[in-house]
Amino acid sequence: MKTKVFLIEKSPIVTAGFCQMLQENAQFDVDATADTMDRIAERLIVVKPDIIVLNPQLIDNSKLFTFRSLFQDLPNVPIIALVYNYFDSQVLKHFDGMVEIDDNLPKIVSKLTEALESASGHSESPDIYDLSDRERAVLIKLAKGMTNKAIATDMHLSVHTIITHRKNIVKKTGIKSIAGLTVYAMLNNLIEE
C-alpha cells in the first residue's frame, strides 16, 4: 500500500506540480490536499495521512511555534515543511523535515522516507522524560568517568547499546557533556563525589 501524503499548500500551481511529481513514484501518493489550515484537525481525522507536507506560510503567525498542537490527534505522523520563502530556523525546527521548492523527485522521496523512518523510531521509545533504570545506571558510570567500552563490559551489554542509552540520556536531559552529566548525577543524588 502506498504511503498517504496530505499536502497543505496554498498555491494551485505548486499543489498540482507536487501531486504530478509524486505520481511518478511508487511509494508515495498524495491522498488529499488542502489550501488552508481552517478546520484542519477535522480533515485529519477523515484523511488519516501517513505523512503531512505543510507550507509554513499557511500557519497563523501567532501559532508558528505551537502549530503542532493542531495535529495532536496524530502524534506519530511526521510533518514536513514545504518551503519557498525564508523561514526562521526557530520555526523550521518544529518540523520533522524540509522539502524545498527546487528539490527534485529523488530528493523529495528521500526526505519523506527519512522523516517516516525517524518517526517510527520515536514511537518505539514513547515520550517518557524520566530516565529508565538502565539509563540511570549508565549515567552514573559515565559521571564516574568510565568509557563506553568499560561500561559495556561492566554491564554485559554491547557498546552499541550503551551508545543508544547515552543518546536517550542526552535527549531526555538536554545535557551533552560528561561534565554536565556529572553535575546532573550529583544534583540528583545519584553519586556522592
Binding site: 536531559t173 538536554g174 545535557i175 551533552k176 561534565a179 554536565g180 553535575v183 546532573y184 544534583l187
Partner: peptide
C-alpha cells in the same frame, strides 16, 4: 556552546 547549554539546562531543571 555545548557546556553553556548544559549549564542552562541545569539551572532551569535540576538545581533546587
Amino acid at each position: 556552546e555545548d557546556k553553556l547549554e548544559d549549564l542552562t539546562n541545569i539551572l532551569i531543571k535540576y538545581l533546587p
